[in-house]
């Protein structure tokens, strides 16, 4: 209900019909939407498989929140593109090389340590980004979506941080698994802070921050939790995996899409 009210009463936003900015703005919105969509799908893979009932429900809630964000970001992306594609069409009918999510979110869910650590590393970034957008974005539509998503992501970050500390500073087994997860995922975090020409175009319009500008705050807040969790980020000598934002993905994304898109591909337009 409130979603419908928000949609019909959406604020005027000159950027939505700005022809010069369109290619960059559309791609940037896809990056926002695809990060939420792919992480949401990965998180949903725990549904019915959680280690305890309570965690199972918490993870399913998180996944649903992220899919909700996807609808808003990709919905706006479709409006900006103005070629008749809505959020569903963008989610279900694009191929892997058209997806713009960072590689971090498409890696397999692994064990609970990988799931929790990934959520934490991404949430810390997601929270900073959404806070910036909600407060500073020149685009009223972007600010509105960010403010809505931020409420949920604040809880995601709080929950994930709490679990990282508990498991990192837990038993020898949980500590080992969390450190392994951190070693595995850390080399994928750099991509979140590496801007390209497209980021610059959107930043110059005042819609979003330069990704680099979030890095120092992210490192500080992540370091604080890792210290408390007695975990140590690996040395990477500046090397990071990247490419997802430009559509160059790991082999894992294809498998996600095969599962996620099967129904719409096999039965176009199917609904219930």
């Amino acid at each position: 209900m409130s979603d419908q009210i928000a949609a019909s009463g959406a604020p005027q936003d000159p950027f939505v019909s700005d022809a010069a900015l369109k290619p960059a703005f559309f791609e940037w919105l896809c990056r926002m939407g695809d990060n939420a969509l792919v992480l949401g799908h990965r998180t949903s893979e725990w549904c019915g498989h959680g280690p305890v009932l309570e965690e199972d429900i918490a993870l399913a809630n998180t996944a649903l929140d992220l899919i909700g964000h996807t609808q808003m970001w990709l919905g706006l992306a479709g409006e900006v593109e103005d070629e008749g594609r809505d959020a569903d069409k963008l989610a279900y009918l694009r191929d892997a090389f058209k997806f713009r999510n960072v590689l971090l979110v498409e890696l397999p869910k692994g064990d609970m340590a990988v799931t929790v650590m990934r959520e934490f590393l991404f949430d810390a970034y997601h929270h900073l980004l959404l806070s910036w957008l909600a407060e500073n974005s020149n685009s009223p539509r972007v600010a509105e979506i960010a403010a809505k998503a931020l409420k949920e992501v604040s809880y995601h970050l709080e929950r994930a941080s709490d679990l990282v500390v508990r498991l990192g500073d837990g038993t020898p087994e949980s500590h080992r698994r969390m450190q392994d997860a951190l070693d595995l995922l850390w080399p994928y975090t750099g991509e979140m802070f590496e801007g390209d020409a497209l980021d610059t175009a959107v930043a110059e319009a005042g819609i979003a921050p330069q990704p680099e500008d979030l890095k120092a705050d992210w490192e500080a807040s992540v370091q604080e939790i890792l210290d408390e969790a007695t975990l140590k980020a690996p040395e990477t000598a500046g090397f990071f995996h990247k490419g997802g934002k430009q559509g160059r993905h790991t082999e894992h994304l294809g498998y996600i899409l095969a599962e996620m898109q099967f129904l719409q591909r096999a039965y176009p337009g199917a609904s219930w």
């Binding site: 309570e54 429900i57 918490a58 809630n61 809880y155 929950r159 709490d162 508990r166």
Partner: peptide
């Protein structure tokens, strides 16, 4: 496992 997590779980459930 403890009260703090019980609150979180209650929130989610």
């Amino acid at each position: 496992p403890d009260a703090e997590m019980a609150i979180n779980h209650a929130r989610d459930v």
